[in-house]
Design a protein around this nucleic acid. Structure first.
Lengths: 141, 141
DNA sequence: CCGTATCCAACAGGATACTG
DNA sequence: CAGTATCCTGTTGGATACGG
């Protein structure tokens, strides 16, 4: 029974890969993995998404406090990029002092789900990776 | 019924986020998202994993041909890094000319599954992102 | 064939100072 | 408060040449 499930998953994965590579051949310019990495492979985007997911509607400096180590410049750059891609909204309130709030769009929440899956895999696999790395390094003297 | 499912998912996601941020607080040095990006946020790692998943056991230059645009240097660097983390194996055959084959480990196959999920999300969301971007840019004159 | 070594350009991103 | 502008450094990764 377990074997059957594993086999089904393997077949399913292989089909996905076939589709994926087929799409790639049809349209030479279109490669989802490259696109993912180009858009979210920077230092701060995923962390911003994650914190907005956890906190809901959040102000600029509030967010800056939550994302440890980010500079004001990079938070601005990151948020503008996410806004441009339709992953977050930016709401300006005409007050003094000014108030600006950021929030995930439905699209952004979809990405958050994917990030969480990946983060969970990473969390679960971390021990194994660290162990593999130590083994590898120890064999180089 | 649909609403119930959506609510369940929202609750599930929120629980995951709570756990995630709780872990982060307990161990200040441990942040899966940062770790993911540090390890796989480079230009070539995910593409290498993806191609090894599609092709199975693959030789160095064979892989170089499949990953469009990668230099010899970067393929070496990328493969070494993945090997160090226990995601791929490197098998050297004592022949002339030398033959070296790379293959995903079970751990690497697990990562592949995650990548595929993310790639599928990206593929499905690409139209929406492109549209959002065009809207954003058009509003800047 | 499968690398390593060296050099170098491009760019991400940090520090700092200034504004509406 | 929420940015923008400017400068500057470190790292990524491409090109090239060479070695086992």
């Amino acid at each position: 029974m377990e074997v059957t499930i594993a086999e089904d998953q393997a077949i399913d994965l292989h089909k996905k890969l076939e589709i994926f590579f087929h799409v790639k051949e049809e349209n030479h310019e279109f490669c989802p993995v490259r696109d993912i990495m180009d858009r979210f492979g920077d230092k701060w985007s995923l962390l911003a998404i994650l914190n907005l997911g956890n906190s809901g509607k959040t102000r600029f400096n509030e967010l800056k406090g939550k994302i440890e180590g980010i500079s004001q410049r990079m938070l601005t750059v990151t948020l503008r990029s996410l806004e441009r891609d339709g992953l977050i909204t930016r709401t300006i309130y005409a007050e003094v002092p000014p108030r600006v709030e950021y929030e995930l769009t439905p699209l952004g929440k979809g990405l958050l789900q994917q990030i969480m899956e990946l983060a969970q895999w990473a969390a679960n696999s971390m021990d194994e990776i660290v162990k593999a790395r130590m083994d590898y390094d120890s064999k180089l003297q």
